[in-house]
Nucleic acid binder design. Structure first.
Lengths: 237, 237
DNA sequence: AAGTGGTCTAGACCACAAC
DNA sequence: TTGTGGTCTAGACCACTTT
């Protein structure tokens, strides 16, 4: 029960109450939790208090809402913090930020020795290139260069390339991810990149390269390069 | 100006208004923006509307609040999503989640050939080991093994090891980060890890290894291994 | 039509920091 | 003491989904 005499805000107490019900499986995954009205009445608090408590749990990934329907349990355990290792789209979504991806280029390409090394491939094979610009609030936040093996044919045919590629790989492609390698290196941007990312003159960028290995294949099926403005060194702790 | 006849919620319109003032440097970095009361009066909206708009911008990292003082501009440009590539603490904080780190072990250690390879060092030198458990809401979310070169003596002496190591490295240590390498591999947990992370029986974990290179040194000064419960395959996209 | 969450207002009291 | 953001209430109207 919530207690007004405690020095802890009501919405935090209520949040803990709800969380406990989820942890103890009184409310199970994908089942609906009480409506805002019901929570107001059960705990004798105002609607703002209920909404504050609920919104924290939504933010932390425990519950989700469906407009016009209700609020539901998403998960019993937290998945804190490692989302960005998997998906930029997801990590933005977790912060309530809508991202938009624009396909700039899509091609089957020829591979030379240099690219072969980049891709960590030992022999020449089919290679598909996808270039996307990633936007948040109409501001470009990254240039993304993707290189796929023939797996791309399926992706291109069946999925929407403006959404999260990680989602497609993890959820829909039905593959086992064996290994993800990643290298981040800061450097000066090229003129073209300055233009695409709307960069000020002296600003550095980051090269983020990623290789994904699946299905026991010794070579990666997917090579990704992000070009990102580097404000990384002055973020507000 | 905000407009009630538009189909866009007032708080989103107000958010855009504030953001524009920041982007166009009408309100500059670290300067105070109008108080909630002033914003209510300027835009003829209620306090909840103002607080909603402001809280989004806080979440996105544009502004920050000081209790009892006011609200201030943090940055002009977005830095969405990439900070967490370096700092777990940051990525949690961005979602309004407080993390707690507990130092389990701290030692100067002997290096054998196996470890030397792991660390990507070519010759033996001083090596300091730090093991921490990382908690959120009293739930352990990761086991962290850190290996430092002699740089650690300064860190250990001058800083609080229960805070963000990334913050210390980036902000306080005054080094240039040249390169960050990272490998993620899923595997079955050891019994000890099951215990420390409170794992259910069939759950996989992720090994996340990270090497950080600084100051043009060809060898990393810092090797990190995270052991993380893996909910990757059921992300709520 | 009924029920849900989404948006919004007006007002209140509080804890905190600065003067 | 004053002003700030933090918490909380009661009430209103809306858009959305299901019946």
């Amino acid at each position: 029960m919530v207690n007004r005499r405690k020095p802890i805000p009501l919405y935090l107490q209520l949040k803990e109450e709800i969380l406990e019900k989820i942890k103890k499986e009184k409310w199970t995954i994908d089942s609906q939790i009480p409506t805002e009205k019901e929570l107001m009445e059960s705990y004798n608090v105002g609607r703002a208090t209920v909404r504050e408590a609920v919104s924290i749990l939504v933010n932390e990934g425990y519950i989700y809402k469906k407009k016009g329907i209700g609020t539901f349990v998403a998960r019993k355990n937290p998945t804190y913090g490692f989302e960005p290792l998997i998906s930029l789209t997801y990590s933005l979504k977790a912060r309530g930020i809508r991202a938009y991806n624009k396909v700039v280029e899509k091609d089957k390409i020829h591979i030379d020795q240099l690219l072969l090394d980049k891709l960590k491939w030992t022999s020449t094979k089919e290679c598909y290139y996808l270039k996307r610009l990633r936007y948040v609030e109409n501001t470009p936040i990254a240039i993304e260069h993707s290189y796929f093996d023939e797996t791309f044919k399926k992706i291109d045919k069946e999925y929407d390339l403006t959404t999260s590629l990680a989602k497609i790989i993890i959820e829909d492609l039905n593959v086992n991810i064996d290994r993800v390698e990643q290298v981040i290196v800061p450097r000066k941007p090229k003129d073209m990149e300055k233009l695409e990312l709307n960069l000020e003159d002296d600003k550095l960028i980051l090269d983020l390269e990623r290789w994904i290995y699946i299905n026991n294949n010794p070579e990666p099926f997917y090579y990704l390069k992000f070009v990102i403005p580097s404000d990384i060194y002055n973020y507000p702790f």
